[in-house]
């Protein structure tokens, strides 16, 4: 059996895995008649976030997913899946549109984090994430967020304010990358496995902490099977949440995050 620290870090490695499906896969496979919408109508279009509308089974939804791409060329174009402020602003624009037309929202999260660069800072990376947190807390339509890969800090949370939080069995979600944590703590990023363990970032940890509501088992299932299980769960959740009066939905969303934290 693996030691504990190998366990947590192995999840990180799996979550980041080169061929692990990200947002684009789930959108294509789960959503019928998908139309991709581009741009934040402010500055540009960020290819690290795919957004648009389509049918989930036979009902319209807005879907937003982080995507890093498969080939090196595509990965460059998509910034390796690290969203810029334009990505978050596009997502918010599409979410507001969803609210207007009473469409539920599904977010797929898988990214090492918000893009880190001079231009992103110039155009307000922090402000873009802050705005999403603020607005998503009040969006009058159900939001389901699914961590499919690495949930990298604030850049992941920017699509993670939701009514139902789901993680795939081998996904992770953390305040900081294990490498970043290890280099701050021990000035040695090669101690990432120990840091991964200390951070408690696995889906199982987060479920135990009541930070997420559901784990979709991966086991030895194929990607198609995982996607199909996820789809069934999302449909069920949207049906449940859609029955709630808007005020109740928002109260429950507030409470969901309000109760998180442990202090003395």
């Amino acid at each position: 059996m693996n030691t504990k620290s190998e366990g947590a870090y192995q999840k990180v490695v799996t979550a980041r895995g080169g061929h692990r499906p990200m947002g684009g896969y789930y959108i294509n496979r789960m959503i019928d008649n998908f139309i991709e919408f581009h741009g934040d109508r402010r500055f540009g279009d960020d290819a690290a976030i795919i957004g648009g509308i389509g049918f989930l089974r036979n009902k319209p939804v807005t879907v937003i997913g982080m995507e890093r791409g498969d080939t090196m060329e595509e990965r460059m174009r998509r910034n390796f899946g690290c969203p810029t402020p334009e990505g978050y602003r596009k997502a918010l624009r599409l979410m507001k549109e969803a609210e207007k037309f009473k469409r539920p929202i599904i977010c797929f999260i898988g990214s090492s984090g918000a893009y880190c660069g001079i231009d992103a800072e110039k155009r307000g990376q922090g402000e873009a994430i802050a705005e999403n947190l603020y607005e998503m807390m009040g969006l009058k339509t159900p939001i389901i967020s699914v961590i499919v890969g690495e949930g990298g800090s604030g850049g992941a949370l920017a699509l993670g304010v939701c009514d139902t939080a789901v993680m795939l069995e081998n996904s992770v979600y953390s305040v900081i990358s294990p490498e970043g944590c290890a280099s701050i703590l021990w000035k040695d990023s090669s101690k990432a496995p120990e840091a991964a363990e200390a951070l408690h970032l696995t889906a199982q940890d987060l479920y135990r902490f009541k930070v997420i509501d559901k784990i979709i088992e991966e086991g030895s299932k194929s990607n198609e099977e995982i996607c199909s299980d996820l789809k069934s769960f999302i449909i069920e959740e949207i049906e449940n949440k859609s029955k709630l009066p808007t005020d109740d939905l928002l109260k429950l969303r507030y409470k969901k995050f309000r109760k998180i934290g442990v202090c003395g």
């Binding site: 802050a130 947190l133 603020y134 807390m137 009040g138 800090s153 604030g154 949370l157 993670g160 304010v161 979600y173 953390s174 305040v175 900081i176 944590c181 701050i184 200390a198 951070l199 408690h200 970032l201 940890d205 987060l206 902490f209 930070v211 969303r253 507030y254 995050f257 309000r258 998180i260 934290g261 442990v262």
Partner: peptide, 26 residues
């Protein structure tokens, strides 16, 4: 920023406070 020693709990405080700011604003 968020305090890494409390892991995901710290990250979630960002959403928690944002919710309270939003209600205050609304």
């Amino acid at each position: 920023g968020a305090r890494m020693q409390e892991g995901i709990y710290s990250l979630m405080q960002m959403a928690k406070v944002s919710g309270a700011v939003r209600r205050h604003a609304d």
